[in-house]
């Protein structure tokens, strides 16, 4: 029977969510391709992971090697290209994460396998795979076909739900094909996120600013935002470009490479709603977006939206909140 490979992503002793999302999300496409699902687990001392994965796949393929202790794209690539050549899975899925972005493109190129990155869904048409992915910052969806099989794809985080499968996987251990140390790339250490004075993950109300606020080093812009935040008793957080510019510290960034927040109120000002941002705030209780572009993807996650210039809306909103507070 054909196989779909799902590469297990783990870091510092934990299997990452994307793994379960892929294992659960690929059942339909695997069925359409007449394939069973194999979780491919590379690492050192992974018995604990094997236990956790048993109910999520038809089979678990395990390669243990000291050289696979930490993720190293070069070492992973060697092992995976060996496994793929040997077993010829019809489809290999890898997370579109920092790990997968580093690994998948070179692996696919080495094997000459077509790769669709950052996929959010699949269709099978006349036995052939079609990948669905987004372009232009999420404003357009695209269907891509593959020139030939086998296929490879990386999967966007949270594109699929991880739903318990209740399977009992057969476990197969494969000897490591790594004969020597990988010398081109060497893992040295992890650097933890800096801990700042404000913990946005604990905030009940967040005013989040994006590129739409323009120059946040401008005193006028800053005080306009701060006044609103003060009236709301909110903490100011932001999207990535604001941190990249150095206008707010990294610990204020919401999103995949920043923090995940779940406040009672998330007020997004001039944020387009790229999935990397949305991943960090979609669980907020009430989401409000102010954006002058009616097609901004943020409006599809928000509960309330105002399509207008934030420089007009924010001062007016601050004023109205003051009135309400003054009146009570």
């Amino acid at each position: 029977m054909a196989e779909v490979f799902v590469l297990v992503e783990h870091r510092r002793g934990e299997i990452r969510d994307i793994t379960f999302e892929m294992l659960s999300g690929c059942r339909d496409v695997a069925k359409s391709l007449d394939a069973s699902v194999t979780a491919v687990l590379l690492g050192k001392n992974v018995d604990n992971f094997v236990e956790q994965l048993k109910s999520w796949a038809d089979k678990i393929l395990v390669v243990e090697d000291d050289k696979l202790e930490n993720f190293n794209a070069e070492a992973y690539q060697k092992v995976l290209s060996h496994l793929i050549k040997e077993r010829n899975p019809v489809l290999t899925l890898i997370g579109h994460t920092s790990f997968g972005m580093d690994l998948a493109p070179a692996l696919a190129a080495e094997l000459g396998i077509p790769l669709a990155t950052d996929c959010i869904g699949f269709e099978v048409k006349d036995g052939a795979l079609i990948a669905i992915r987004q372009m232009y910052g999420g404003k357009v969806n695209a269907r891509f076909s593959f020139k030939k099989s086998p296929y490879m794809a990386t999967i966007r985080s949270a594109a699929f739900k991880a739903e318990e499968l209740g399977l009992s996987a057969e476990v197969e251990k494969v000897p490591s094909p790594l004969t020597e140390e990988v010398t081109t790339k060497r893992f040295l250490e992890y650097v933890e996120a800096v801990v700042g004075e404000v913990d946005i993950t604990q905030a009940e109300r967040i005013v989040a600013i994006g590129r739409g606020v323009g120059d946040y080093s401008d005193e006028k812009v800053r005080s306009m935002i701060e006044e609103l935040a003060n009236e709301l008793g909110a903490v100011i957080a932001c999207s990535r470009p604001i941190v990249d510019k150095g206008w707010l510290p990294k610990d204020r960034q919401v999103g995949t490479s920043g923090k995940t927040v779940k406040p009672k109120l998330y007020l997004a000002l001039g944020i387009s709603g790229a999935f990397q941002h949305v991943a960090g705030m979609s669980a907020s209780e009430t989401i409000v977006a102010v954006n002058k572009d009616p097609k901004a993807p943020i409006f599809t996650v928000a509960d309330y939206g105002i399509v207008d210039d934030l420089f007009k809306v924010v001062p007016a909103l601050t004023e109205k909140i003051r009135e309400i507070k003054g009146g009570s």
Binding site: R11, N70, F71, N72, T97, S98, F99, K185, R186, F187, L188, E189, Y190, V191, E192, A193, V194, K250, D251, Q253, T256, S257, G258, K259, T260
Partner: peptide, 9 residues
């Protein structure tokens, strides 16, 4: 990496 973590290589 994700969540503000980095790796040094």
């Amino acid at each position: 990496l994700e969540g503000g973590l980095e790796e040094v290589l």
